[in-house]
Design a protein around this nucleic acid. Structure first.
Length: 112
DNA sequence: GGACTGACCAACC
DNA sequence: AGGTTGGCCAGTC
């Protein structure tokens, strides 16, 4: 697994219970301002991956910039997992990002 | 080893 | 308001 993917996974693991982050933010924190797509690919690569070190990644806490759930595998499961964490969805199926978006402490997720 | 495929996002027409 | 585009990484065949 690549360095960048590893960094993405470590960042995702830091997302606290009941909060969400969008793909673009993770990319920015990892010094890839335009790497949102790559973050998505990193998540996609997790699907069907049963490696123990990736078991605890809360991949359902990563959503699109507008607060909707990304397409791909298991979108419904991701939504229900978020609801289990107390996150309320708006009528149009999106999350109120102002309310649930997690802002990482500066430097905390920086790798060298 | 090149081509193709994937959970994206902001800036432009 | 809605389509297009550039930026970006790794896995598989």
């Amino acid at each position: 697994m690549s360095v960048f993917y590893e960094q993405v996974y470590e960042t995702v693991m830091q997302i606290p219970y009941g909060s969400v982050v969008c793909y673009g933010d993770i990319a920015k924190w990892l010094n890839h301002p335009r790497g949102a797509q790559v973050v998505g690919w990193a998540m996609s690569a997790l699907r069907g991956n049963n490696r123990p070190e990736y078991e605890n990644i809360p991949w359902h806490r990563v959503v699109k910039a507008d607060g909707s759930i990304a397409d791909g595998g298991a979108a419904e499961m991701r939504r229900s997992l978020l609801e289990d964490e107390g996150i309320e969805f708006l009528i149009d199926g999106r999350i109120d990002m102002e309310r649930y978006r997690w802002v990482a402490p500066p430097g905390v997720d920086r790798r060298y």
